[in-house]
Design a protein around this nucleic acid. Sequence first.
DNA 1: CATTGTGAACTCATTCACAGCG
DNA 2: CGCTGTGAATGAGTTCACAATG
Lengths: 213, 213
Amino acid sequence: MTKSAKIPKATITRLSIYYRQLELLEFDGYRMVSSEKLAWLCQGNPAQVRKDLGYFGEFGVRGVGYDVIDLQAHIKRILAVNRDWNLGIAGIGNLGSALLQHQNLSARGFRCIAAFDNDSRKIGKTTPAGLKIMDIKDLDQTVEDLKIEIGVITTPPSAAQAVADLFLKARVNALLNFSPTRITVPECCLVENIDFTVKLDMISYELQHEIGA
Amino acid sequence: MTKSAKIPKATITRLSIYYRQLELLEFDGYRMVSSEKLAWLCQGNPAQVRKDLGYFGEFGVRGVGYDVIDLQAHIKRILAVNRDWNLGIAGIGNLGSALLQHQNLSARGFRCIAAFDNDSRKIGKTTPAGLKIMDIKDLDQTVEDLKIEIGVITTPPSAAQAVADLFLKARVNALLNFSPTRITVPECCLVENIDFTVKLDMISYELQHEIGA
DNA sequence: CATTGTGAACTCATTCACAGCG
DNA sequence: CGCTGTGAATGAGTTCACAATG
């Protein structure tokens, strides 16, 4: 089954993208798809698709391709998105509110079930999604009560590390950090950063070159 | 000066991160910093720091390190963030509104100067930042009038490609795409995707392994 | 003499090319 | 026959190790 070779992080990213395209293919009525077609849809390379899948098993039929429904199920299992995950969001500004209302998240099993802030004007209020905003001081207890597994940081940069520490203390060891600050965590904790100021810097860099060329 | 070797994309990403740390170092009163210290702050490797900078010139002093202020200026120039860029945001939902109010963007010279939507209930309204929401149909004209250089897509997935096409038609050839859809653009156009559903899938994948281990 | 700058070594990721198979 | 699965070849990116030097 699962080969125990070291799997590139980029492979996981691509599996997530393949999955999205498979949903669309199913919606469009396709039953089978070749690595060539899937690669084309995902702006990738067919050999890459096959290798990515090959890390986890043999899901295709030679001479035919991959079963669209079947492969979705396999990828869901690989990514462990065939279950729900409980999320807590800290920092209910514009971005935090956006995430709370994001229908795509719950549709995919990422359930935002707690909202925290330190602003007394916000605490106790109910979000449009019907979630009561809690005092960040109660994070520890709430994480335990609601079995929160993933912490989302949408605070201003200055508060990011402190909030990360609170999550860590509550034994949440996966964080999604939207602040443009690199947070420091122990080895056991896993952090993904989403920093759009970095992305804008990259656009700036490349645009300049295009103009200069 | 600028060596014309092929520069890894990851190098540009790191330059952006170095820059942030240099700001903090300056704020804390540091005048000089070594590659070792900067690497430590950015959770990287000293040789990597030196190599990244080495692509663009010799900014350090052997035996001493890098001048904190000086190096900031160099990186700003390299990334072309020593000037302003004009942004237009399409899709004024929660996420779009969040970006419009994001003080960090304007502070860094990314000026959100136009907001578009196709919802007649939103068009004509004024955002908290004092920007009037325009009809997406007027995108072409507005891009020209305001000299918009970067298009930001914060629409639902289903509208992302159509909006990208509008930006392209208006000769905006840099897009920041927040929708979880891969958009298709001609070679000349540059796209950066920010897809937090992919990041969550990665967290899910890795969490599962940690639990399994 | 501490720290930079950089070729060489190495590690990791992608692509090729073809054997294997339905 | 066509497409998958995969070892081998290539390519890209990172780290090492040390000469260069203010």
